[in-house]
């Protein structure tokens, strides 16, 4: 770990001012940042602590949606009564991630920005374009069992690690920020970037731009949702494949479906292909399977991770079955 300056922000404006300086980084729960600082993977020159900002509330919106402060802890969000009742997929995703201790620290804003678990990103002795642009990718011909089959490039195949973001992708969440140029609202689907030839850029945030809150739209009555995470062990492991489903069924037909995957993409992976394959169709295993095939049509297997493609399909089929069965 390198020496760094530390300051506490008292206002959002102050945070944005301090956070905009070169080499600065915001720190919230610290569950990713401190870990990577210890490994010398991230070496910020200054940390701006945003734990004192009053961004820790979950509030209903007049339009029936939900506003989630960036500093709401993962455990609090997962156990929020409204989230559990209306946005089950989000609660399930949060509770499937990390461990209770980590969830007690990790925040909503921080979770959206968490870093990949790629072995090669986390070790400064390896070439890694995400950590050191232009140095190469050690995962391409390395042990890539945990790596992405969707959204990868010749420069990076690291998966995005978040479960929460996958659920929020299926919920069509919006990220609200405040930056040097004022406030912005960014659809989550447009928030993340695929690696292309700039894997060091993971999202559209500008220097000093701070996530202040996330909003979820209202869901039509009767909407059902579910998150299923598949992995080697039962707890405390990142997804090999996960599926988030938000679906409305009427008269045996799927009216609306929002589908996202975790563990398989270089970003939380929304699948419009699967949604198109489902909407207007009858609920049947054949339809679900067709949607799963559509979702994974562009998947590119590597030496060790081909099984993830089939695993993700099965996760989707199972979550669709569970959310479309008669209640």
């Amino acid at each position: 770990m390198e020496v760094f300056r530390y300051s506490q922000a008292r206002t959002v404006e102050g945070a944005v001012r301090s956070g905009g300086a070169a080499g600065s980084s915001f720190i919230a729960g610290g569950t990713t940042l401190v870990d990577l600082m210890k490994l010398n993977v991230l070496q910020p020159r200054a940390l701006v602590d945003i734990n004192g900002l009053a961004l820790d509330r979950v509030e209903p919106l007049p339009n029936g949606g939900l506003r989630i402060g960036a500093m709401v802890r993962n455990s609090d969000l997962a156990n929020d009564a409204t989230v559990r009742q209306k946005y089950a997929v989000l609660s399930e995703a949060l509770l499937s991630g990390a461990s209770p201790q980590l969830r007690n620290m990790a925040t909503t804003g921080g979770n959206l920005l968490q870093k990949t678990r790629c072995y090669y990103f986390r070790d400064t002795n390896y070439a890694c374009n995400k950590r050191q642009p232009g140095s190469g990718c050690s995962a391409l011909d390395g042990f890539n069992r945990i790596h992405a089959v969707l959204g990868g490039s010749d420069h990076c195949i690291a998966t995005h690690a978040s479960d929460m973001a996958v659920a929020m992708m299926a919920l069509e969440a919006t990220v609200h920020t405040q930056g040097p140029k004022g406030e912005r609202a960014i659809a989550l689907d447009e928030f993340y970037l695929v690696p292309g030839d700039t894997p060091e850029r993971e999202n559209v945030l500008l220097p000093g731009e701070l996530i202040t809150h996330v909003t979820l739209p209202a869901l039509a009555s009767g909407t059902r949702s579910r998150y299923l995470k598949l992995r080697d062990r039962a707890q405390y492991e990142f997804a090999l494949a996960s599926s988030a489903v938000v679906v409305n069924v009427s008269g045996g037909r799927i009216e609306r479906a929002r589908i996202a995957f975790g563990g398989v993409g270089t970003k939380p992976w929304r699948s419009r292909e699967a949604e198109h394959a489902l909407e207007g169709q009858e609920t049947s295993e054949e339809v679900f399977r067709r949607a799963a095939e559509a979702a994974m049509a562009d998947a590119k297997p590597l030496k060790y991770n081909a099984f993830k493609i089939e695993l993700a399909k099965r996760a989707l089929v199972r979550t669709l079955k569970e959310t479309t069965q008669a209640a």
């Binding site: 002795n125 042990f143 062990r233 039962a234 707890q235 405390y236 492991e237």
Partner: peptide, 21 residues
Amino acid sequence: PRNAKPLNNNFADYLVGTNAD
């Protein structure tokens, strides 16, 4: 095989049973 490093040299990547298992 490239540098003889044990890649999963930590408690997150070297899996042992959790209580849930």
